[in-house]
Design a protein around this nucleic acid. Structure first.
Length: 944
DNA sequence: TACTTCACG
DNA sequence: GACGTACGTGAAGTAC
């Protein structure tokens, strides 16, 4: 075990100082969130930390080898620097929830390697390192500081160098000059001027490292510079230096390391010791690191322990005992929840939120429709298990008393007081508001005049990470990742006919439920946020998900005007026609039945009438889909009549009737809601009502678009991408023939047909073009002979021949498909051109599911890239059209619909088209230009 | 609640 | 050799 030999430190000695905290963070972020198999203890950072120590130990040979060594850790987060400047390191992102419990384990790991570790309350690791480096240099020895932290560069000198383990590079005085433009002695001066956003060192506004180095080199040092500030020629710099002199001096004190920290040990105590095989292996075994145990045993020439058997036997390492660790699956405790009913307590919570810089936020309301919902309460969570509920709109529990039912329950702060108190934090750009589907809360707060920003959304974090794996509702996420089933809302408001609104829920019950929601949200955030980086979806989240929240909130609140009279007239006309058709259908069938019942229809068509070609599905029911009825229409009059009836029934029930019910009584407009995390490919989905499937393909249906109108003096403008998915296919698959056709602006389906069937463009028939069009779309969907055959109603071998010909004429398609599937099989996901990750968990399945997964994997990057592009366009659109009297109202996958004052319509088209056509730049350069077509008119029918 | 059908891109 | 397929959605209606 620990040998007690001490070597005196002196000339010829070489002290290595490892920045332990930096090692931990690097290890944490470099590795996926590993857990110990036996009990789920998070150990990813410990594993990485051990691997780095092991690598260090193996490489510690040769002339630069250490004679003395220590690993230095930070202890606590409050240091003497907070006394100088309370905001120091105040904007640090919070520690990931699964990292803190690993801290004691990294100390234990260091001890297991038989390396001394040190940490001192109130001082940063950097200060201890500075003190030891000074002592070692004074004793005549040499020092290597192992860290990538530029704050330590001020220590470099004749006897002291740094070693950057990330870049595997030694940094001497020359390296410091390279980084800071000045020598080590003046690093502090430059840092004082330039500041540091990570540590929240203020510095001098507008002065970066370059300018700072130039000034210091010119004036010699910081004090001389500040003393001579008045003589500086550039007015802006002069003013800055004069106005911010105090702040610069404070910054200098913050970055200046303290090299006189009182130590209760000396350099001799840091004598290098060889690791003890038993101790080290016991620790690695306890952590259940199989591979590393084997490797270490191998290097040390001993037998590797059996992990399973050794777990119970392994002695605890001689070191600080690891603190008791709550497993990540610990049940959620409600005892830390409070109900806020006084202004004083509310003020305390607000102060705590400010100090912390983030808070989980949730609203409880009377409706799922944000445009009608009334605020009933607000919940906040600052730490896991620490949450509050602020009731503001609960009704008194009337029981039989009819009068009590409409009065507010007592013991609630007035809504306006609560909002006035919260507004500053809710709008504070330095306080992050974390929500689950926070677009909902953004809209609720917007209706109360509060702009909730900035925000994070756990639903979108999960979406960026886990699209394709599962849904992203809070209850699902909580069960999956917290192993906790939140209180079901049903328990409070009931369900079905007896369901009540949230304002009828007693405050005490509501408080637990609501506080738990905020608590769960905060825990999910701690869980997901650190994963963005390792999953390489940070950019996706930050550029395609998060910024879309306020954009969609505003579109949804704007709504679109729908003419009720037009719809009502259409409903009546449809109803009359349907009654007529129904009579004819019954006559034709020979008896009366429910035309809307596929089951009854199938029985009549195939059992009673004995029509040919019927097939039963897997549930034993006759198929009566439109394609079946179309084929049957040549045999009998009935199927055609049913098709006509169905079209009208669909239009009436789904559109002309339902849309009227969705007109908001206050605004007179229809407000859809977009799910950002609904479709796995990155597309949006529109609900309540769905405005992305308003009819357009038939004349009859298109009339419904005529009911979407602009108010007097305004027009609707529609812009849509032309063939965006085919263009993306041509781009990602590198199909030159297709790209050329797009560049020449010729009809892409005709061009495809010409190439495939050797028909000159001028002789093209609509039938040949139709077939080529079907194949083009088929390719985007992951073509199969069966699917194409069914779509074109041709024999399967003919369809196969078409596909073979297509692959032959457009080489690149095959390769794209094969490569995409291979990538999915290897990685378990595919990506769009912008890095959006779409997981493909079924890609290695056997049987029919394999086919589905294959085609979905082929389609996802194409559909998803198109979705990313229009998202980028939407995010840039608002600032671009801010000066125009225009509003963006709707998105329909490749189309944006705007409402604009009539005289500005053409200007809007110019601006919006430019944004849309260039939306991929600069992140992705497309070799093909995107083309956007535009239209305007009084109604959507005219604009499209 | 599951299934079928059909509206859109 | 058979399986059972075009990709992605949401809503309404019937049947259980």
């Amino acid at each position: 075990m620990t040998d007690t030999i001490k070597a005196p430190f002196g000339a010829g000695s070489h002290l290595h100082l490892i920045d332990g905290s930096a090692y931990i963070f690097r290890a944490y972020h470099a590795l996926p969130p590993l857990t110990r198999k036996s009990d789920g203890l998070p150990v990813g950072a410990v594993a990485g930390f051990c691997a780095m120590l092991q690598r260090y130990v193996e490489n510690n040979t040769g002339p630069e080898a250490a004679s003395h060594i220590a690993v230095i850790f930070d202890k606590g987060s409050i240091t003497f620097r907070n006394g100088i400047y309370p905001e120091y390191k105040a904007h640090r992102p919070p520690l990931p929830e699964d990292l803190r419990p690993q801290f004691p384990l990294t100390r234990a790991a260091t001890a297991a390697f038989n390396i001394v570790y040190k940490e001192i309350e109130g001082f940063e690791a950097d200060d201890i390192i500075a003190t030891l480096a000074r002592q070692a240099a004074e004793a005549g020895g040499r020092v290597t500081v192992i860290s990538s932290d530029k704050d330590l560069m001020q220590l470099v000198g004749p006897q002291v160098v740094m070693f950057d383990p990330m870049k595997n590079k030694v940094i001497d005085a020359e390296g410091v000059v390279e980084k800071f433009g000045v020598g080590p002695q003046r690093v502090v001066d430059v840092q004082a001027l330039a500041g540091d956003s990570v540590d929240n060192v203020p510095g001098a506004p507008g002065i970066g490292i370059k300018t700072a180095a130039q000034l210091i080199n010119e004036y010699g040092d910081l004090e001389t510079l500040l003393a001579s500030a008045a003589q500086i020629k550039q007015p802006k710099r002069r003013e800055t230096l004069l106005n911010f002199a105090d702040q610069i001096r404070i910054s200098q004190r913050l970055v200046q390391l303290d090299n006189h920290v009182p130590l209760d040990f000396d350099l001799d105590d840091l004598t290098l010791r060889a690791p003890d095989a038993d101790t080290l292996l016991a620790f690695l075994t306890q952590m259940e690191f199989r591979t590393m145990s084997k490797r270490v045993a191998d290097r040390m020439g001993v037998d590797a322990p059996m992990i399973a058997a050794a777990v119970t036997k392994a002695a605890a390492p001689k070191a600080d005992a690891p603190a008791p660790i709550a497993p990540p699956t610990a049940p959620i405790d409600h005892s830390g929840y409070v109900t806020i009913t006084t202004a004083e307590v509310l003020a305390q919570w607000i102060a705590a939120i400010r100090q912390q810089g983030f808070v989980a936020f949730d609203t409880e309301t009377t409706s799922l429709d944000e445009m009608q919902a009334e605020l009933v309460g607000i919940s906040l969570a600052t730490q896991p298990g620490v949450a509050a509920y602020i009731p503001v709109g609960h009704l008194s529990q009337g029981g039989d008393d009819l009068f009590a039912d409409n009065s507010l329950a007592s013991g609630q702060l007035p809504l306006n007081d609560v909002l006035a108190a919260l507004r500053p934090v809710l709008e504070d750009p330095s306080v992050l508001k974390i929500g689950q589907n926070i677009k909902y809360d953004v809209k609720i707060m917007a209706r109360h005049g509060i702009t909730l920003a900035p925000v994070d959304d756990t639903m979108l974090l999960s979406y960026a990470l886990n699209a394709g794996l599962h849904n992203h509702g809070m209850d699902d996420l909580s069960e999956l990742y917290l192993n906790h089933r939140p209180i079901p809302i049903k328990d409070l408001i009931g369900s079905g006919k007896s369901m009540v609104t949230f304002d009828h829920v007693p405050i005490d019950k509501a408080a637990t439920y609501a506080a738990e929601d905020a608590d769960v949200t905060l825990r999910l955030w701690h869980h997901f946020k650190p994963q963005l980086h390792t999953a390489r979806v940070t950019t996706v989240y930050e550029t395609l998900e998060r910024p879309l929240i306020p954009v969609l909130a505003r579109m949804e609140m704007a709504g679109v005007q729908v003419d009720r009279d037009t719809l009502a007239r259409m409903s009546n006309a449809f109803a009359q026609k349907m009654v007529q058709l129904e009579e004819e259908i019954h006559a034709s069938a020979g008896r009366s039945f429910n035309v809307g019942s596929p089951k009854q229809l199938g029985e009549i068509l195939f059992d009673e009438m004995g029509l040919p070609g019927g097939t039963k599905g897997k549930n034993g029911a006759w198929g009566t889909g439109a394609d079946v009825l179309e084929d049957l229409a040549t045999e009998h009059a009935l199927p055609g009549l049913v098709l006509d009836w169905r079209q009208l029934s669909k239009l009436k029930s789904t559109y002309t009737d339902a849309l009227q019910d969705h007109i908001n009584p206050d605004t007179g407009r229809v407000h859809t809601s977009y799910s950002i995390a609904g479709a796995i490919t990155g597309r949006l989905a529109s609900t309540d009502p769905n405005l992305q499937n308003i009819p357009v393909r038939t004349e009859e249906g298109r009339r419904i678009r005529g009911a979407f109108v602009a108010p007097a003096g305004k027009v609707l403008v529609s812009l849509d991408y032309s063939q965006i998915e085919l263009r993306i296919l041509a781009e990602v698959a590198g199909i030159e023939a297709l790209k050329d056709a797009f560049r020449q602006g010729i009809d892409i389906h005709a061009a495809t047909a010409s190439e495939m069937f050797n028909v000159p463009l001028e002789d093209m028939t609509s039938e040949i073009r139709r077939q080529a069009k079907a194949i083009n779309f088929g390719v985007i969907y992951g073509i199969s002979a069966f699917g194409l055959a069914r779509n074109l109603r041709i024999p399967r071998d003919r369809a196969q021949a078409f596909i073979d010909r297509y692959f032959e004429r457009f080489p690149g398609i095959r390769a794209y498909m094969d490569e995409t599937v291979a990538y999915a099989k290897e990685h378990g996901h595919v990506r769009t051109m912008f890095g959006r990750r779409i997981n493909t968990p079924e890609i290695n399945a056997k049987g029919p599911t394999a086919g589905f997964a294959r085609r979905a994997a082929i389609n996802a990057p194409i559909q998803g890239t198109a979705a990313d592009i229009i998202r980028r366009a939407m995010i840039r659109m608002e600032p671009a059209i801010a000066d125009l009297p225009a509003k963006m109202l709707l998105q329909v996958h490749d189309e944006l619909l705007f409402e604009v004052e009539a005289p500005a319509a053409d200007k809007l088209i110019d601006v919006a088209r430019d944004i849309m056509e260039n939306a991929s730049a600069p992140a992705v350069h497309l070799g093909l230009k995107l083309v956007v077509e535009a239209g305007k008119g009084h109604s959507w029918a005219e604009a499209h």
